[in-house]
């Protein structure tokens, strides 16, 4: 009896209100990238330039949810990815962008675009092309259901590799103590 070859796993990645540091960490998998590429094919990702997420096995999202576009992208991922992973501090806690959460958004915009002379040039931008900011920044799990979390700022390449290979092998991802980092 032969075991049928497993089709490659389809993986989508994106960064919402993030700094792409988590994506850099993904690339840091280094020499393991090649074996990983034998296991996965990329859908929407900064690495492919595919603009919309199609049906996928795994979605990896870094960054918090800070504006309307982030919400659309997150929903698109949730609708298309069987497994959704929050990648890094911002996706899991709101992170750096959420440091504005104790400030009033209206006052922030006013300060930056109206009051502060060095910055104000023609008022608060209102181009419909620009996504509007939410009043607060949220981690992914407050907007959609999230299946797994890889903490860290950024998570180590090893932690990402561990979770991805666990999932591809059909194991419940288990990070050992030294890979559960929040900084």
């Amino acid at each position: 009896m032969t075991v049928p070859a497993r089709p490659r796993v389809r993986l989508a990645t994106t960064s919402l209100a993030g700094c792409f540091g988590c994506h850099m960490s993904l690339l840091d998998i280094d020499e393991k990238l090649l074996p990983l590429l034998e296991l996965v094919e990329f859908d929407r990702s900064p690495l492919t330039d595919i603009k919309h997420c199609g049906p996928c096995d795994i979605g990896l999202i870094e960054g918090g949810v800070c504006n309307a576009e982030n919400v659309h992208v997150l929903r698109e991922f949730r609708a298309n990815c069987r497994v959704l992973i929050a990648l890094g501090a911002c996706a899991i806690t709101g992170g750096l962008p959420a440091q504005r959460n104790h400030l009033d958004l209206g006052l922030c915009l006013q300060e930056v675009y109206l009051t502060e002379p060095s910055l104000s040039r023609g008022g608060i931008p209102n181009d419909p092309e620009l996504p509007l900011p939410l009043d607060k920044v949220h981690p992914l799990h407050e907007i959609v259901r999230v299946d797994y979390y890889i903490p860290g700022c950024p998570p180590s390449a090893e932690a990402i590799w561990q979770v991805l290979t666990d999932l591809i092998a059909g194991r419940l991802p288990q990070l050992p103590e030294r890979l559960v980092r929040y900084d």
Binding site: A86, A98, R181, Y182
Partner: peptide, 15 residues
């Protein structure tokens, strides 16, 4: 958190 394998606060953050 690391030792107990906590990867998310899970609950809604109170900020």
């Amino acid at each position: 958190g690391s030792d107990l394998g906590v990867t998310t606060a899970g609950f809604r953050h109170l900020y």
